[in-house]
Design a protein around this nucleic acid. Structure first.
Lengths: 130, 130
DNA sequence: CGGCATCCTGTGGGATACTG
DNA sequence: CAGTATCCCACAGGATGCCG
């Protein structure tokens, strides 16, 4: 993407977006922060079962760089950092709702007793709009 | 994803979806096929500038497996294969439109003389709905 | 608590060449 | 024309351990 050909620089609208949404955890993190409005690092760790601290930190940093997530550190002991979505991040979150709905309709009905909290998030997302 | 924890299998609605949309070219290919309704392999190669035959073949195979794309081979000389979207694939394509729109609004106005045909595709997608 | 530093592996995907 | 076959590598991301 964003390659140059015929001497013209490509500003393809998908450029960059792929870089964001193609990261395995990025959408999940954005969704998660959006669900909580305001959430701390370790709380994210708990919700996003299976993610490693490194990966979470890496992607958070990237999302902040992209202007999708806002990082608010507090000078407290113990240290505390809050993460929230920027307006842009919130808009992206809403933009992925149709994909969530598509995924759910495709999978059939969501089972009740699933330990995976992502299901609840999916529902939460969909509920936003319906 | 689709991991087992507490003895319960997770049927997270995002499971599998990430595997699809996280592939760099998958959405582009789905979009491209959708734009053309029916398109042949080499035509896809031309439209998706920069993709290698291996990558295109790999992802097409996967999309077929996922039931998003339909492959129609003809017994002709020279050989001919048409690709079309399944209903499911078409629905996914529509589900990503909001993300496209978000991307475009974020990037600002699309420039006119861009050699990258992806822009046209983005426009085409958006035009579908507006 | 909220990270960062290191190490390591799997694999998406690029380049190139060949084929039924 | 519509792919395979190989080779190769950059990079996401897991595991583990340390730090202010």
């Amino acid at each position: 993407m964003a390659k140059e050909s015929n001497g013209v620089i490509c500003l393809c609208p998908l450029d960059g977006v792929i870089d964001i949404i193609s990261k395995k955890w990025a959408l999940l993190i954005i969704n998660e922060i959006g669900n909580h409005k305001r959430i701390r690092y370790n709380n994210l760790m708990k919700e996003l079962q299976g993610i490693t601290p490194k990966t979470l930190a890496d992607i958070l940093k990237e999302l902040v760089k992209y202007g999708l997530v806002k990082r608010e550190p507090f000078n407290e002991i113990p240290p505390r950092v809050d993460y929230t979505l920027t307006d842009d991040g919130e808009q992206l979150r809403e933009a992925i709702i149709p994909i969530l709905q598509w995924a759910i309709s495709r999978k059939g009905t969501v089972v009740a007793h699933c330990s995976c909290s992502l299901i609840e998030k999916g529902k939460a997302l969909v509920r936003l709009r319906s």
